[in-house]
Design a protein around this nucleic acid. Sequence first.
DNA 1: CTGAAAGCGCTAACAG
DNA 2: CTGTTAGCGCTTTCAG
Lengths: 353, 353
Amino acid sequence: MADVAERAGVSASTVSRTLRGYASVSAEVRERVERAARELNFAISRQAASLVTGKTGVVAVLVPILKSWFVGSALEGLGLVLRAAGLELVVYYVPDMVERADFFERLPARRNADALLVFSFDLTEEESARLDDLQMPVIYVSQHAEGRPSVYVDDVAGGRGGTRHLLNLGHRRIAFLRAIGVSGFTFSSNERLTGYRQALTDAGVPLDDELVVGAVLGEDRTVVQAVGQLLSLRHPPTAIFVEQDELAVAVLWTLRKSGFDVPERLSVLGFDDHDIARWVGLSTIAQSPTEIGRAAGELARALIETPDADRERHIVLPTHLIPRATTAPLTPPPPAPESGQETPPAGPGAWAD
Amino acid sequence: MADVAERAGVSASTVSRTLRGYASVSAEVRERVERAARELNFAISRQAASLVTGKTGVVAVLVPILKSWFVGSALEGLGLVLRAAGLELVVYYVPDMVERADFFERLPARRNADALLVFSFDLTEEESARLDDLQMPVIYVSQHAEGRPSVYVDDVAGGRGGTRHLLNLGHRRIAFLRAIGVSGFTFSSNERLTGYRQALTDAGVPLDDELVVGAVLGEDRTVVQAVGQLLSLRHPPTAIFVEQDELAVAVLWTLRKSGFDVPERLSVLGFDDHDIARWVGLSTIAQSPTEIGRAAGELARALIETPDADRERHIVLPTHLIPRATTAPLTPPPPAPESGQETPPAGPGAWAD
DNA sequence: CTGAAAGCGCTAACAG
DNA sequence: CTGTTAGCGCTTTCAG
């Protein structure tokens, strides 16, 4: 910076003022300084600046996973807002419990960021408490944190809306397929199930626990098994509401492989509006992780400027139905359903319990 | 830090030495200092430290997209290495040309990171040159950059290996489906195609440009059209090598929807070993983005320590075939192929040109 | 509107 | 093995 000052024939203070965009710099001087800075390829050192301002110009995020559509999209939304605000994004990738314990032990974000966004973790109260004395705004993303700022989607409404859609199509036996073991997402999962139950109850359709099954994303066998379980019920469902698009695609795949036409024989509804949903024509409840990221970023910006305001602000984002090709009105049952054998279950593993 | 020093009854220097893990601190003092630090919840300010050490403790990455399996996985691999090395990860998300111009204009990473990893961009020589005078190691990830350190997968070998697999199964009419318009990935794309051509040539199978088609990921219509084009050739292919798993899945979907059995009628081979490949049983050429990220992180670490070594080091990672359920030996042509009508093309748009 | 001076929190010689 | 001292590169009063 001294170099720039010299080249422009001014003092360092003036260079600083110019580069920070203060109005109190004469046009002529500003011009000279800016040229000098450009010619010398000068960029302010955040480190030095933050030492005196007390602001780091950094927003940190804590994420359990990065290769996920949800987290990736949210980070994209966040990234846009942050750059517009001149903030940098540092990522703490904390995939397992060991790393996590270490993170909460050391809290590396302390003093090295102006705000922390916690993504999709199911934090213990103890961990949250630890974050509370971090001396910076902490925002909970994709989860509702009591008494703390958070940004999330109205999963209950989404679950309800999706279920209603199926009810409106005439379905009464509606299954719900949960995604098991997606660490950090149990909050959403429970909420969606709650919405499903609410909608059924509101419609006077009795809840049936046999219709709620689970599968592990990425473990084909569990999907086949879950689907098989449903198809072999005394009163099998005519529609399946799958908690997550990626899992819904696995379900579609399983059904189609065994000759079950979707949506003719069975409607399938997903949740997320993952990119893949569009490719395979999956009807789904859309949420916008990009929007979540953006909202979280804006909340962060606000809290950095006004630390005390909005301490408990919750931003709840909407979902909406995107009907595509996998949900259809309930068709009357096939002509002669006399023989119990007429609906063979789906492929290998279908009879597994 | 002064507080910690006082509480432990030592000087600030000693606190610094202790916290940085220098051996020259007596066990007893170390103990006192560590306790004091913990009690006061003290964490070193990177900003202040870097001001004097000249190291920021930060590795920056420049990415064109975040919600992609590839980039996400690579960042996970990178993240692991970085944390182990005590480095932080800052992400510059630069999705479009405007942002990109701005990035190269301002080069915000200058002085604010110890190394920069450039992910999957097709940089112009001018942009690369700009990065060259960044005063820090710049590593090109997922692309070969002449004379500059880079980490990438041997896409040519992958393309060759995949094609050989299909040749070994008896296929001779092998199509290649390119992914169009995936910004930042044309390097890999070209390499894979090159490998495909090499393998065919080596095997004495004539190249046929009609067998190389393109489609846009996420635009179903283009996939249907590309597949239709292939199926309506005078000599249609018996296998399709798709440059990317996600696109391959769209192809599978299209084929299955129109009753084309895979792999009985047509083999389909992907590239990536994307998670989704496993779910749908797609045979594919595996690469490991996590490994790429890890290797890039280690190279970054090395270059930060020894800036002049390895200036041109290239790390080339292998690929390997994962045969699953979508490739099979060429079956003899169906019994009586007399009538030209016996093989209807695939669904709507199949005849489109 | 601009310059001089002080100091942000830390580390790295240099003594002891 | 530990303390003292002198900055690192910036921003910010405070004068002018």
